[in-house]
Amino acid sequence: MARVLIVDDAATVRMYHRKILEDCGFEVDEAVNGLEALEKAFTTRYDLFIVDINMPKMDGYRFVSELRAREELAQVPAIMVSTESETKDSDRAFAAGANFYLIKPARPVELTTSVRLMLGEPA
């Protein structure tokens, strides 16, 4: 089963996304900021990242650019998830190399379908 890393500083949001994804059978791991996510990504293979934007230490933009700057992680798809006030920043997310942008809170079916689509794994 595909393994997804949720990168978000808010424990509540992590819990919400984890539940949604686990209910669909994905293996889920969590990181509280971009730096921790990057560390985890070096030791564990993930198939997709779900990334918040505003986080301490390393924000989502930086994390995605760091991903794209590293050969072995570059091609892992990343979905940015953020609150609507940041909609204007979606362009910045794409410029950093994010594959998709969802508004938080993402509707369960929206989140799972996006993940499935990008991984090419229909239910």
Partner: peptide, 22 residues
């Protein structure tokens, strides 16, 4: 858009290929 790096292109292609597989 613009001049994406090789990494961004490969990240995009992985997801697009995934959608085609889907």
């Amino acid at each position: 858009d613009g001049e994406p790096t090789a990494a961004v292109v490969s990240a995009a292609s992985i997801a697009l290929a995934g959608m085609r597989r889907y």
